[in-house]
Design a protein around this nucleic acid. Structure first.
Lengths: 236, 236
DNA sequence: GCAGCGACTTGCACTATGTTCAAGTGAACG
DNA sequence: CGTTCACTTGAACATAGTGCAAGTCGCTGC
């Protein structure tokens, strides 16, 4: 930024220009805070201390900026040693880490629905995922299928929490009385659930919204999936 | 609609007003054709033969309309007999049907990321899903976890094809030369993949985009997941 | 040291789109 | 025949992505 807001006027500084990295970092921060629909170029420009349109010179378009941000966050995933004695340890670590990342950045799954992400960050992840399943003993196409099975399972699991987080942010942004709206929505959900026998039976046991889905459902499912894959491994 | 477009002029008819059902049906058609971002109220109004703003009286807002459409499509899923001798048959049927529905309506997963869908249509589905896993022998919370495991697996699997479909529609809408852009994107994806050993090894085997993910990956994964669950069933 | 060039920034303005609102319009009912 | 209520309409406003032409800054070659 070549100017800083100080008490309402701009003080000139030795010029240092925006960088793409800086912009992507700021975009991710805004996305985390306000969700995909909450990101707008004018707010981003303000955060960066420059005009909204300056960003365009560096990233071309908002869509491209989102693509860049969407790829960047894949670098947050740590890659476990693929040659552990127990491949399930590595597989579980990567799946859990991915789940956590997707929960940290709920907008990523929204972006995934709209843009195809295939940058270096995701490639780095995908490649290492394959390493783990190949080291486990899955050969050729079987490694792809095993990796895809766990990967898609994790994506699907993160969808619920991500949707809940996005909804919350959206309401807080648009709705003057977000808490009341959320309460109303949950009441309505319970009213609907009450009309179906098995859902009704669960109304008292656990609350009806996704954000309350207990974390152990993910771990339960993940271990079941890995069991199913391990059985196939024995048959190879 | 109270008027019909005939050769460019409007012919008045005995008044029949818009219905919410009509609007939702038209919205689903537009969403299927143009994707979530392609739906706009003016186009919807035009398709319905009325002013864009007439829709608001019936559905309140675009968000609400999307929520209505998002719930409606769940009714397309057929509910298999939960008391089949082999529970896996019913479970597989429902999962496969859901996968097909999500592929037919790629915008649904996008909407799922932005809005929480919990209408009667999804409740009907969820309730029946529980019926199947309870009939299979999963008791109490185990039925929820088993159902959620398969359900989220299917969601995650549909995400790839849905993203590809959305992207294609988006490009066709915005880009004058969509085919070229798609080709460029795939070339770029291959360039990136070439920098990672395991992805590079696969470059010639199968193409790098999601739409080409073979259908058998879904079936492979689904059966693996069901295997993992069945093993738990034996231990109950 | 200065002219010019290229890298970046800016404000303006255009466009598309969700939405509000006040005014209408038609059908049914008393 | 008039009132009412259910709907429809067109104009208008706000927001947000983005193209464009005109800057501004620093470096480079003369």
């Amino acid at each position: 930024m070549n100017a800083v807001q100080v008490d309402g006027y701009r003080e000139s500084m030795p010029r240092d220009t925006l960088t793409r990295e800086q912009i992507v970092t700021a975009a991710i921060a805004l996305l985390d805070a306000d969700g995909l629909e909450g990101l707008n170029m004018r707010a981003l420009g303000e955060r960066l201390g420059s005009a909204a349109t300056a960003v365009y010179w560096h990233v071309g378009s908002k869509d491209n900026l989102i693509a860049l941000a969407s790829d960047q966050v894949w670098h947050e995933i740590t890659l476990p040693d693929p040659d552990l004695v127990n491949w399930r340890t590595a597989a579980t670590a990567m799946a859990t880490d991915l789940y956590a990342m997707l929960t940290r950045h709920p907008w990523l799954l929204q972006a995934f629905g709209s843009f195809l992400m295939s940058g270096p960050g995701k490639a780095r992840h995908d490649d290492h995922l394959l390493a783990i399943y190949e080291a486990a003993g899955f050969a050729g196409a079987a490694a792809d299928q095993a990796a895809a099975t766990v990967f898609t399972f994790v994506l699907g699991n993160a969808l619920g929490p991500a949707a809940a987080a996005s909804l919350t942010r959206k309401l807080r942004r648009e709705d003057s009385d977000a808490e009341q709206t959320i309460r109303d929505t949950m009441t309505e959900a319970r009213r609907i659930a009450a009309q179906f026998p098995r859902l009704r039976a669960r109304l008292d046991t656990h609350s009806a919204d996704y954000s309350a889905a207990p974390d152990n459902t993910f771990q339960f499912g993940l271990q079941a999936v890995l069991d199913g894959l391990e059985a196939r491994l024995g048959a190879m």
